[in-house]
Design a protein around this nucleic acid. Structure first.
Length: 127
DNA sequence: CGTGAATACCGCCAGT
DNA sequence: ATACTGGCGGTATTCA
């Protein structure tokens, strides 16, 4: 969950790991990637998809196999991954820029999805 | 590292 | 009668 609203800009990512769902939610994913640093809460996504929260959750999970919140997490991690290797920005700044409320949040997401901390990721796969 | 508060998700029910 | 949608409530999970 994302309960704050950072501020910032937009950015692009490479292909996503949710291709299977891009058929139905490709547009949404695209939009999400442009607003990664915004507050992407369920209500916001549902609104973007033009559905009620309930229906959106249901359909999204159905199409992607993962829940909306998890998808956002994946998207953010992927964006952060790139910045870690393609830029020399400090982790703290990257975390903000990718929509994580804090450095700590990003760290937890990394550990959960990649089983490595941001720092570790950078030293191991960084440019 | 614990605590409080917010959010996500899911089952169930009702309306169309 | 079947299928889909939206809302509610409770519990689980996450964030700061």
């Amino acid at each position: 969950m994302f309960m704050k609203r950072p501020g910032g800009q937009a950015q692009f990512s490479t292909a996503l790991s949710l291709q299977a769902a891009d058929d139905k939610f490709g547009a949404l994913h695209e939009w999400i990637n442009k607003h990664l640093d915004d507050d992407l809460q369920l209500p916001v996504l549902a609104d973007q998809a033009g559905m009620s929260e309930r229906s959106f959750s249901r359909h999204y999970a159905e199409a992607t196999g993962i829940t909306p919140a998890r998808a956002i997490e994946r998207l953010r991690v992927e964006a952060a991954r790139q910045l870690l290797s393609e830029s020399g920005l400090p982790v703290k700044r990257i975390s903000r820029r990718c929509g994580f409320g804090s450095e700590e949040t990003m760290r937890r997401s990394f550990l959960r999805l990649l089983a490595v901390s941001p720092q570790e990721y950078r030293t191991r796969f960084g440019a």
